[in-house]
């Protein structure tokens, strides 16, 4: 029998610490497959975030650097500018990227840094236990927004793809999700395209993944993915937001 699907060489053998049904594991696999297919496991450097993705360097097979909270784009800039032939990518959550690290991601995009950012948007701070993120939807409850996010108090959620797409240095921004298999296949295509554009030195590439956090959303995995495909995808439209 021939293998139809086996674990990618882009992953280490380590067991993931993520909660059951968490999207991080799926996105890790898509990145691993991309690195393997583009033959860049051996040359790439991953910049890990602070948040649930903090251990990603123990899971993906490429070299990795752990950044301070939000600073992954600055760390990636330091690496990519000094090692321009190396594929470099950051893997960041919404607290990391859209809150504390908003300056770093905006300026990396503005400068057109030639690395790729995979942005995990699950609308919540996962690692710290479900606090409100800049991406938490209006009405969505969080441990620091016990009555749900309110527009008057907290403002409206940030759409990072659209915000960054106004910057000239960004050449590709696509929003995807991994809530079911057809969407996973699309997400893989987007991640691979982003890396390919990086390898062609085109500019800053950005893939936002709408991700499920069943634990902190207090939902079953099924309900969580319905939430992704429903309210989340409604506020954060899926598809290519910018392509130069």
């Amino acid at each position: 029998m021939k293998p139809v699907y086996v674990k990618s060489k882009g992953l280490q053998d380590t067991e993931l610490h993520y909660c059951p049904g968490c999207s991080h594991g799926i996105v890790h696999k898509l990145i691993a497959e991309t690195l393997e297919e583009l033959n860049i496991i051996d040359t790439s450097v991953l910049i890990c975030p602070v948040g649930c993705g903090v251990f990603a360097g123990n899971y993906l097979a490429c070299d990795a650097v752990e950044a301070a909270h939000g600073r992954a784009p600055a760390v990636a800039t330091g690496i990519k500018r000094t090692c321009p032939d190396q594929p470099v990518f950051t893997y960041q959550g919404d607290g990391d990227l859209a809150s504390i690290g908003i300056a770093e991601i905006v300026h990396a995009a503005m400068r057109g840094e030639k690395f790729t950012t995979i942005f995990i948007n699950n609308g919540i701070y996962g690692m710290t236990g479900g606090q409100m993120a800049p991406t938490t939807l209006i009405g969505q409850k969080a441990t620091t927004a016990p009555l749900g996010r309110q527009k008057e108090l907290h403002g409206e959620p940030i759409r990072m793809c659209e915000m960054l797409s106004s910057l000239g240095g960004l050449v590709y921004a696509e929003r995807v999700c991994v809530a079911d298999v057809p969407h996973i296949i699309k997400a893989k295509r987007a991640i691979k395209k982003a890396f390919t554009k990086q390898l062609n030195n085109e500019g800053f590439t950005f893939v936002e993944v709408l991700a499920a956090c069943p634990t902190n959303w207090a939902m079953t995995t099924r309900k969580a993915n319905e939430w992704v495909l429903g309210p989340m995808a409604e506020y954060y439209p899926l598809g290519v937001i910018k392509e130069v």
């Binding site: 450097v45 910049i47 650097v65 950044a67 301070a68 600073r71 600055a74 760390v75 990636a76 800039t77 330091g78 690496i79 500018r81 000094t82 090692c83 190396q86 300056a103 770093e104 905006v106 300026h107 400068r111």
Partner: peptide, 26 residues
């Protein structure tokens, strides 16, 4: 060699961190 004017001191030191992590003199 590389010169980057960072967006902040915080970003600048983290660029140093990245380049140093890649084995460069930063």
């Amino acid at each position: 060699k590389v010169f980057v004017q960072a967006e902040s001191e915080v970003a600048a030191i983290n660029m140093v961190y990245g380049a140093a992590a890649a084995g460069k003199r930063a």
